[in-house]
Computed example of a mutant assay.
Amino acid sequence: MSASFASALAAAHEAAAGQHYPQGALYVVATPIGNLADITLRALHVLQHVDAIACEDTRHTQALLRSYGLERPGAQLLALHQHNEAEAAQAVVERLRAGQRVAYVSDAGTPGVSDPGARLVAAVQAAGLRALPLPGASSVTAALSVAGAVAPAQGEPGFVFAGFLPTKATERAGAVAALAREPRCVVLLEAPHRIEELARALAVLGPRPVTLARELTKQFEEIATQSAQDLPAWLAGAPQRARGEFVVLLHPMAVAQDDGEGLRVLHLLLAELPVKTAVRLAAEITGAPRNGLYDAALEIKRADS
């Protein structure tokens, strides 16, 4: 443990020790996705004081704990991963019923989103016990925060989390075809040994911008935006571009300027349909922006009343 983390442990105690940490509860703890300094003070305090830590990989977690001076006896580390989550979750539930505090950490980031943990939380809740979140690092929100891919002016607001696409080529192509019709930003995850296959599959989206974020928070972090059709060539341009874990963001679908056709169709539909239905159909028929059509529909209704 470095002197800097010794200071962090002292700060964690000062900041978090006075808070309430109920017994018989599961603490879902986010851990760094690369940079060890991204641990939160509350996470350090909880990892130091819980009775046991369930984790995706006991060796990885022990090394992480050792970095902070929090190494645990092996008996206090419980393996809980995608291959044993259902069975291991029941062992955690029994500990909680006995009044223990148990933390759960995945290998990196926030558990239960793409990493294991969701089944564990469901089992805890089904048993009438508490699951408490300790928020922190997340590759998804980290990439979204710097990609500029959820601005409403670009298209539909918000984003969709799709995670890992199927590994089989035909299933992956079908998934991409479905994503091509999604107007909002889409968040994908991919491993380095499959990123080139994913890039080739996404190339059919043509000029749609795609942001690739790899090695987030690490020394060789790289965030780049290319058109979908240029992704394969960009990855092939330098060997290091295919290394590391990836967050891939499909930017919102480009919205064509309304040439008046959207408003014309909207007027016709409003005569027969409720506002929301008329707006949805007018947007699908003409490609006009839904938000603008909705505002126009409200004005039309007010003028008619």
Rank of each mutant, 00 (worst) to 15 (best):
residue 1 M to T: 08
residue 1 M to Q: 07
residue 5 F to H: 14
residue 6 A to S: 11
residue 9 L to T: 06
residue 12 A to E: 12
residue 13 H to T: 09
residue 17 A to R: 05
residue 18 G to W: 06
residue 18 G to N: 07
residue 19 Q to Y: 04
residue 21 Y to H: 03
residue 23 Q to C: 10
residue 29 V to A: 11
residue 35 N to F: 05
residue 36 L to W: 04
residue 36 L to I: 06
residue 36 L to E: 01
residue 38 D to G: 08
residue 43 A to P: 00
residue 48 Q to A: 15
residue 52 A to G: 02
residue 56 E to V: 10
residue 57 D to V: 08
residue 60 H to W: 10
residue 66 R to G: 08
residue 67 S to K: 00
residue 68 Y to T: 01
residue 75 A to R: 12
residue 77 L to V: 04
residue 80 L to T: 11
residue 83 H to I: 12
residue 84 N to C: 05
residue 90 Q to T: 08
residue 93 V to H: 04
residue 99 G to M: 14
residue 99 G to R: 11
residue 104 Y to A: 11
residue 104 Y to M: 05
residue 106 S to G: 03
residue 110 T to V: 07
residue 110 T to D: 00
residue 113 V to M: 10
residue 116 P to T: 13
residue 117 G to M: 11
residue 118 A to K: 02
residue 119 R to N: 12
residue 120 L to C: 08
residue 123 A to C: 07
residue 124 V to Q: 00
residue 126 A to M: 00
residue 130 R to I: 04
residue 138 S to P: 03
residue 139 S to R: 06
residue 147 A to Q: 06
residue 147 A to N: 08
residue 149 A to W: 06
residue 154 Q to G: 14
residue 157 P to M: 10
residue 161 F to V: 11
residue 163 G to W: 02
residue 164 F to R: 00
residue 166 P to I: 03
residue 170 T to M: 06
residue 170 T to Q: 15
residue 172 R to E: 03
residue 173 A to M: 02
residue 179 L to S: 03
residue 184 R to I: 12
residue 192 P to E: 04
residue 193 H to C: 09
residue 194 R to V: 08
residue 195 I to W: 06
residue 196 E to P: 02
residue 197 E to W: 02
residue 203 A to L: 14
residue 203 A to S: 15
residue 205 L to N: 11
residue 212 L to I: 10
residue 212 L to M: 14
residue 216 L to K: 05
residue 218 K to I: 09
residue 221 E to D: 14
residue 223 I to V: 15
residue 225 T to W: 05
residue 228 A to K: 05
residue 230 D to P: 05
residue 236 A to L: 10
residue 238 A to M: 08
residue 239 P to H: 09
residue 239 P to R: 04
residue 241 R to S: 13
residue 247 V to F: 07
residue 247 V to P: 03
residue 252 P to L: 07
residue 252 P to M: 08
residue 254 A to Q: 13
residue 257 Q to T: 15
residue 261 E to V: 11
residue 263 L to R: 14
residue 269 L to Y: 05
residue 269 L to T: 05
residue 274 P to G: 13
residue 276 K to S: 15
residue 278 A to F: 12
residue 279 V to R: 03
residue 280 R to G: 10
residue 282 A to I: 15
residue 283 A to Q: 03
residue 284 E to S: 11
residue 286 T to F: 13
residue 287 G to R: 09
residue 288 A to T: 07
residue 291 N to G: 14
residue 293 L to Y: 13
residue 294 Y to K: 14
residue 296 A to G: 04
residue 297 A to G: 06
residue 298 L to T: 10
